[in-house]
């Protein structure tokens, strides 16, 4: 039997393996094959490249500072030149984000039934993130305070769990009874529960607002003195929160 291997010098054996595996290489080449097919028309709502059509940025009036308060308005994407209904081009999230991986499964934010509010003039709006419905910073000689507004579907574990979560953030021990830990507050038909805590120079005012099938959280945190001074303004701000 003729065996090709024996005619090769020992040092050229890897070349032989290369040859043997050339087929594998070919198989992994980039596919440039053009195909054609006929498919039934899709319903209009379903047309277009769904996974890449990231949702158009939701118009959130809360991100715009109230008119007449002097803060510069965020620049809205000028997409009026595109056809109606086309998502904004600039700042569009990467389509890889389209669809939440299971890893981030615990942070879906509530989308239905928004709330609106009017922020005090002295607060500086920050960009709302995927998690935050609204975000402001408050500056003072004592440092910087942060206002975050978030919303999640359901009751997010219940009031006690939320209060104890905040207490944990302040490194305070958990409480057993939520009623003694929060103050109720009524605003525009909404039932607010206000929690306040301070520890080691940090103060937090957290507000739980059940609304529709979601729970909204308004949270003010920062240096103790700044937050104590800002508290009346924050309580006034809470009274502006309403369902549109």
């Amino acid at each position: 039997m003729w065996i090709p291997f024996i005619h090769m010098a020992p040092h050229s054996r890897p070349n032989l393996i290369l040859l043997l595996a050339a087929g594998l290489l070919l198989a992994s080449c980039k596919d440039t094959k053009i195909i054609s097919y006929r498919v039934p028309k899709e319903p209009v709502a379903n047309a277009g490249a769904t996974p890449l059509s990231a949702p158009a940025p939701v118009a959130n009036t809360n991100d715009l500072p109230p008119a007449g308060q002097g803060s510069p308005a965020p620049v809205a994407p000028a997409n009026d030149a595109l056809p109606p209904g086309h998502p904004a081009i600039e700042g569009m999230p990467a389509p890889g984000d389209a669809g939440t991986a299971m890893a981030s499964a615990s942070v879906p934010t509530a989308a239905s039934q928004p709330l609106v509010w009017t922020a005090p003039a002295g607060w500086t709006p920050k960009n709302a993130s995927a998690m935050r419905k609204g975000s402001y910073s408050i500056s003072g000689p004592e440092g910087e305070g942060d206002v975050s507004i978030t919303a999640f579907p359901g009751d997010v574990g219940g009031n006690l769990a939320n209060v104890n979560r905040w207490r944990g953030q302040l490194q305070l021990p958990p409480v057993q009874d939520v009623t003694t830990a929060v103050q109720p507050l009524e605003a525009n038909g909404l039932h607010l529960l206000v929690f306040e805590g301070a520890n080691q120079g940090t103060r937090m005012i957290g507000v739980i607002v059940p609304h529709s099938d979601a729970t909204w959280f308004f949270k003010l945190t920062g240096p103790d003195a700044l937050i104590a001074r800002e508290k009346p303004a924050f309580l006034d701000f809470l009274k502006t929160v309403r369902a549109p």
């Binding site: 980039k30 596919d31 440039t32 094959k33 053009i34 195909i35 054609s36 097919y37 006929r38 498919v39 039934p40 028309k41 899709e42």
Partner: peptide, 9 residues
């Protein structure tokens, strides 16, 4: 009723 598609990678 139908769409005739030519798909080019």
């Amino acid at each position: 009723k139908f769409d005739d598609v030519v798909a080019i990678p």
